[in-house]
Design a protein around this nucleic acid. Sequence first.
DNA 1: TTGGAGTCAATAGG
DNA 2: CCTATTGACTCCAA
Length: 338
Amino acid sequence: APESPLSSAEESVKSLGEQGGGGGGCGGGSSQVPLREPSEPSESQPGTPLPVPGHSGLSIQEMVAMSPELDTYVITKKVKEVLTDNNLAYMKRRHSSVSESQTADSGGLSGGDFSQGGSPQHGLGHHLHQQQPPQQHLKKARVVLAPEEKEALKRAYQQKPYPSPKTIEELASQLNLKTSTVINWFHNYRSRIRRELFIEEIQRGEGGSPSTRAGKASEGDSCDGTESDGTVEGTRPGHEHHPASEGEGGSDHRDDGTTSATGSNAAGTSGHHKGGALDSLFSFPESTHVSSASVATTTAARNPRDSSLRKKKAANLNNIIHRLEKAAGKDEPHEWEF
DNA sequence: TTGGAGTCAATAGG
DNA sequence: CCTATTGACTCCAA
């Protein structure tokens, strides 16, 4: 059992400090890790990869090996401590200087309207959460898609899970989103649908019988979208408290989705009066598959198959250890088996 | 170039 | 405060 973590900080400082400071001028490239002042000399532990604080020099691996279980809480704590002690924690992501990168949104309006307060990404509802810290362009405001936009994107997905660039462009302009946002959304949505399907299959025992796809796959795979609507429809929750989303019957069939989206209706008016345009473009008398997705989420992930879960954890831990060791400047992370 | 997988991080809700 | 959700991002393979 782990000892009290209280003393950990100091101890780790000692050992780590020693580790780096030791061979004066060993300044190999590994100087990545700014080590703290070795406040006081202490017993060095040359062999130990990453002296784990609070455990009298036990490395994370050793610590893990000692315990019969993977105590992820303790492990995580240790990892965090090591990171902190190496000044590796709290680092912003690698390219947090998003202000420059402004990514793949080539399609968008010209004018490098970035500048963090620049283009108010207007649009219906979907607001950028820009609490607008006067901080000079450090963070990019997070885009939050409005429910209508999500619905529209989902419907588009029903028509075409893999939209062409042109379609993406159209979607973006109709929803008044950046193309990169639409692209990201499709990536994420596909990925998450896939994952849910996977989890679902695991849950229903093994099998992975093709039939399993029927229910849920309607989410993604059907390109015609028709029967998918049918299947899901039964279960739909029917919330959607938007008075605006008046059922507005027919509208549903835009023959071939995507492109037609532009075609029908008041596309002309799309410039303004977003709500109306959207309603007719992507009108949805029903809020289709919201339900299935969330159901999957809620039911999923419980009932873990122990062995596989354990394997996953072990693999993950291995990965963490590997990266820690790398970060700490250890040339050759030594093998560890679970 | 594109898509998948994995991850980060902002936000919302309990 | 913790967890879930989700948009954005990175890396890699095809």
